[in-house]
Nucleic acid binder design. Structure first.
Lengths: 194, 194, 194, 194
DNA sequence: CATGAATGAGGTTTCATTCAT
DNA sequence: AATGAATGAAACCTCATTCAT
């Protein structure tokens, strides 16, 4: 249980620092101080700053995906699956402000490698949604656009929520976004799903 | 015609470089080389790298806003105004790949000052949309969420388009996003507006 | 009369700027602006910044020496000559604050070449004093030390006067310094000389 | 013994370089090379070039003051205290050529902050002398001028000694300066003090 | 003579990374 | 495994000087 304990500690520190300072403003020194270790220790667990950032992002993505998977588990109705997936994702962001900061705000200009990674994750997530939508009877071509739009809409809403200092009612806003996309595909039993 | 020629040249070079490398990877040397001038020349026109980046972003924002204003000019129907605004914005991005890169992709982690600025612009743009929507009969509270969501959806779509190497049919995708939000608010004469 | 007019103008500007900013903080741009000409014009009259500074210092030294020579002209009594020399020098500094700044304060750390020049001037001036003192009956060996000390004392007093914002009564202080050195050599008719 | 070792090493290197090149001609690279370390190492111990210079000057001033204090310790006679103070100061300069260079020659045009500091130190030192002189029965007003003059005379003498390549007999010269000021105030038992 | 835009060498400073202890 | 002092490449920026107009 203590195995990997130190690495976890540093990752947690990195999350705090990256979320606060962004990738470039963050320094190894800052992370090491936050983790209460020496800068040299940092390099026992990570090859480089970039490696650490990618590891962190990976971990956070996995966490998000796990929550989504858990939310989908045992649900048969595709509309319900879709709904629960999105709610789970937003819930993760809502619960962990730093995580949301790192993934949605700080990552963007960070590094080509990160952008590539983030891009693949969003793509993967969209693919999930597309499949659910197709199962719901939406044409694949339309579903692809819709899924991306939906993701974008939610990311923007979470972004507003973050920048506004969490003043926005995130649950209500998420729900409204859901309604919008739901209606667009004539999923008439929106209410029943809800 | 030569008025402001050199500064414009450097700004164009900066656009190319920032779009390609992002804010932090871009160096003054790179920009100066692209503009075929010495690094010192850069500093004749800009106080600092940040100053240049902000000037570039400002210029691009103004360009986008101008196109939007032009598209809205003389249009009375709020739905039509909204539709044209969004189409104009997307059209600007479609026409100028670098501009889209800088504003939508590279800016994010660039600089606190830039983030503040970007944030204000998105807010201003959303405000426009909200007003149009309210005129269309949408409740303001709902319109605010919707406008942000809409912006997010479009940004994501343009992002996909950029990252996919402009493979996506941007016009079609934009149209689909429009349909989605339109239907969500029961704007029944969507087809007529279209 | 207009011949050299421009060069003089720039020298005057240089005096103002060097006196205010010191050698290193002063820029050609600053001097050119003060002289209301372009930086290129500066280089029509001076080979370099250093050249200009040295020319300025030279001019100021010549001015000081001229005043001293005028004060000594036609005076036979060596004690009187000495007294008048020093008073003339101090009077020049008192009348031209900028000149004093440049020569006594700003020059020091400026440049090896300037230090060499300043050093030679002080040496020359001391030589004058030594000769007068020897004529007064002071032993040469003693006179050399005394002359340097006297110069140092006066420079310090003028320095204090400058830094204090000219609050000190420079005439009175100079007189006291004179009394000190006078008495030291038993020049008993100090009062009559005075 | 190794405590503060590296910082001290760099300070010593800085002393050598500043003394040789002056503040502006000195570069971090030069100091680091002299200290046989990388330029980055310099910044582990000093915030900036200015910080280092000020720290050096501070250290040298403290050293000078300590020597003066030691020389005055347990001496009751004010004339003796004064005499010993000045001799101690000159002795410090005589023993450490570089120290004298930095404090008396190179500092002048270095930096506004340094000039301010140097100015305060000379003022403080003069104050000491003034008090001693007043105790000796000299009128305060006269003593103030005299103290400044005395300091100036000594600084000039040391300056001559430095520039002449230490050819001058500094002890003898200092003694002569002392005689001059002593006699000026009719301190009749000069010889006994001596 | 005069201009001032352009130049580019060179300085200060930062910080990811290494390595001897 | 842990440390943290040391490294040095590389970035930003300044400004004396040049030169085409």
């Amino acid at each position: 249980m203590d195995e990997g304990g130190r690495k976890e500690e540093i990752l947690r520190a990195a999350q705090t620092i990256f979320s606060q300072y962004g990738y470039h403003q963050a320094t190894i020194r800052l992370i090491a101080d936050q983790a209460q270790c020496a800068t040299g220790t940092f390099y026992l667990y990570f090859v480089s700053k970039q490696d650490c950032f990618l590891a962190l992002v990976e971990k956070l993505y996995i966490h998000v995906m796990e929550q989504i998977m858990r939310a989908r588990a045992g649900v048969g109705n595709p509309a319900e699956k879709l709904k629960r997936s999105l709610e789970a994702a937003v819930e993760v962001f809502r619960r962990d402000y730093e995580l949301a900061q790192v993934i949605l705000v700080r990552g963007a200009g960070a590094d080509p490698l990160f952008e590539e990674r983030m891009w693949r994750v969003r793509e993967a997530f969209s693919e999930f949604m597309v499949n659910d939508l197709v199962e719901c009877g939406v044409k694949r071509e339309t579903a692809v656009i819709g899924a991306h739009g939906w993701v974008g809409a939610l990311v923007e809403i979470v972004g507003v929520w973050i920048r506004d200092g969490q003043a926005l009612d995130l649950a209500k806003a998420t729900h409204e976004i859901q309604r919008i996309f739901w209606m667009a595909w004539g999923l008439n039993d929106f209410r029943s799903v809800d």
